[in-house]
């Protein structure tokens, strides 16, 4: 938070020492029009957050479902998992967004909403990375844990759910937090298909007001604040889980 405040202060001081290029009136909450503009920009928070949370939820589930067969003894399952990761990881997110929104309906015959096209593209793209993170986390758990689970008669599902994953997730939590931040930033790309999230709102206001410097500066700060909130949340979760083990 301190960083954000410093940055904001620096930006606000800048106009004093430059040649008057800044025009903060455009988002000045003290004026009626500035307030309207600011509210318009902040109106994008809802969809940015919704896109990110829905996206990360789906991508974690898909990532896990891809990672588990990747650790199987059965070769075709491993190959399928590997293939998914390599293929999906190779597609740029922007391309995937365009493909899902404009291309997929031609294939399926069903139109897809902007929101779901965005969520699917973000989630698919991220799931390949989640799969790799889960794989690394699960592989870091020693053989002895599986053997102990074997001797108390736990099946594969119960072993994963109660023994392996709780330990793996603790270890990969920082990496998962990274992916959440990444997803939050990448959600800005969904603006290209017309999703009314933060970036789209800013673009639209810039077209009307011709003040890209101030408006995009506000946009930068909006992302910064959201990401600092996410970081704080992840750190809190890490602390809580460590405390958990100490009892």
């Amino acid at each position: 938070m301190r960083i954000a405040t410093l940055l904001l202060a620096a930006l606000l001081l800048l106009p004093g020492c430059s040649s008057g290029q800044w025009g903060w009136y455009v988002v000045n909450p003290a004026t009626a029009s500035g307030m309207t503009n600011l509210k318009f920009l902040l109106g994008g928070v809802y969809y940015t957050v919704l896109l990110t949370l829905t996206g990360i939820l789906i991508s974690v589930v898909v990532g896990l479902l891809v990672a588990l067969p990747g650790l199987s003894k059965i070769r075709p399952l491993r190959v399928a998992s590997r293939g998914y990761v390599e293929a999906v990881r190779a597609v740029p997110i922007l391309v995937l967004i365009l493909w899902v929104y404009y291309g997929l309906p031609q294939l399926t015959g069903f139109a897809i909403s902007v929101f779901w096209a965005g969520v699917i593209a973000l989630a698919l793209s991220d799931s390949a990375f989640e799969a790799e993170i889960f794989r690394a986390g699960i592989q870091s758990i020693g053989k002895g844990q599986y053997e102990a689970a074997h001797t108390i008669s736990l099946g594969y599902g119960a072993t994963m759910r109660y023994v392996i994953l709780p330990q793996a997730i603790r270890r990969i939590l920082p990496a998962l937090g990274n992916q959440l931040v990444y997803m939050l930033k990448m959600s800005s790309l969904v603006s290209v298909i017309g999703m009314q999230e933060l970036t789209r709102k800013a673009n639209e206001l810039v077209v009307v007001e011709y003040r890209p410097l101030e408006i995009y500066t506000v946009l930068v700060l909006e992302y910064l604040v959201l990401i600092l909130v996410v970081s704080a949340g992840v750190r809190w979760l890490e602390r809580r889980m460590r405390a958990d083990e100490r009892g």
Binding site: Q145, E147, I152, S153, L154, Y162, V163, R170
Partner: peptide, 21 residues
Amino acid sequence: GFNLFPHLTVIQNLTLGPMRA
């Protein structure tokens, strides 16, 4: 090497098998 479940308490280590298996 004992192979206890480090993320579970002692009693949870003991009850996992009875409850889940």
